[in-house]
């Protein structure tokens, strides 16, 4: 697969525009309508057996804000693998597959969060327990397996229905591994009663940073901000060398 340099730039700019807009909308909704953009506020609706439209919108905005940056490379790949005339169609199918998986996962998580909310445990116990679960998942071999699979790009069909199916399935598969990797932190976000924006931002940095890390053997280890730390250390090292020279 060969990338078109101009299309690479276009994709990056478009995705960054989408994620910026999503952050602005998340922020404004949380400012204008207290309770919205706080999935905790939707627990009552969920407990009545239906995920409200508002909850769906908020969840979608969270996804767009937090996950869009990690889709830059897969989208570039889908477009580079497709005939130029079909690039937009393939991109939309990829995004549809990815989003469908996350919307389904989101519904399950909202239901789980609602169930936990009515479990009788205090907020601190719920959040503390799920923080430990998220930390354990972060260090687990299963998390590494999911992260590794997030990097997998496979050859897509170029023509006809097979091309459409491949783009959709590729998006859904990316969604499955992405949800597998990030579910614990996302669920923790749903359990918080305040500080969502800050927690979302921190989680976004973690997700993006760990996605930049090399695939690695599946084992127990701490992972997450290593790449971000190394980028900072690398820049410092290069500056020091430049000054020394």
């Amino acid at each position: 697969m060969i990338y078109d340099d101009r299309d690479r730039v276009r994709v990056r700019n478009a995705v960054l525009a989408v994620t910026t807009l999503a952050w602005v909308l998340v922020w404004t909704r949380s400012m204008r309508i207290p309770g919205l953009s706080d999935p905790h506020a939707h627990h009552h609706a969920i407990s009545r057996g239906a995920v409200s439209a508002s909850a769906a919108v908020d969840w979608m905005l969270m996804l767009a804000a937090m996950m869009a940056p990690v889709l830059i490379q897969p989208i570039r790949f889908v477009r580079g693998s497709s005939l130029a005339l079909h690039r937009t169609r393939s991109t939309l199918l990829f995004v549809a597959g990815y989003t469908a998986v996350w919307m389904f996962a989101g519904a399950l998580m909202l239901l789980l969060a609602a169930a936990l909310g009515s479990s009788g445990f205090s907020l601190y116990v719920r959040v503390g327990a799920f923080f430990l679960i998220a930390l354990t998942w972060q260090c687990s071999p299963a998390k590494q397996a999911c992260l590794n699979r997030c990097h997998v790009l496979w050859a897509l069909a170029a023509f006809g229905r097979a091309a459409d199916t491949d783009a959709l399935v590729f998006g859904a598969t990316q969604g499955v591994w992405c949800a597998g990797s990030c579910w614990a932190w996302m669920l923790l976000l749903l359990l918080l009663s305040s500080g969502h924006i800050v927690a979302m931002a921190a989680t976004t940095v973690l997700i993006f940073s760990e996605r930049l890390d090399d695939p690695a053997p599946v084992s127990w280890r701490w992972r997450g901000l290593g790449r971000a730390r190394r980028i900072v250390a690398g820049r410092v090292m290069v500056r020091k060398r430049a000054r020394a020279a």
Binding site: I2, Y3, D4, D5, R6, G80, S81, S82, L83, A84, A155, A157, A158, F159, A162
Partner: peptide, 13 residues
């Protein structure tokens, strides 16, 4: 320079 597009591909592995 720098304008690249797919012309075609085979059906499978």
């Amino acid at each position: 320079r720098n304008s690249v597009e797919l012309v075609g591909a085979n059906d499978g592995p």
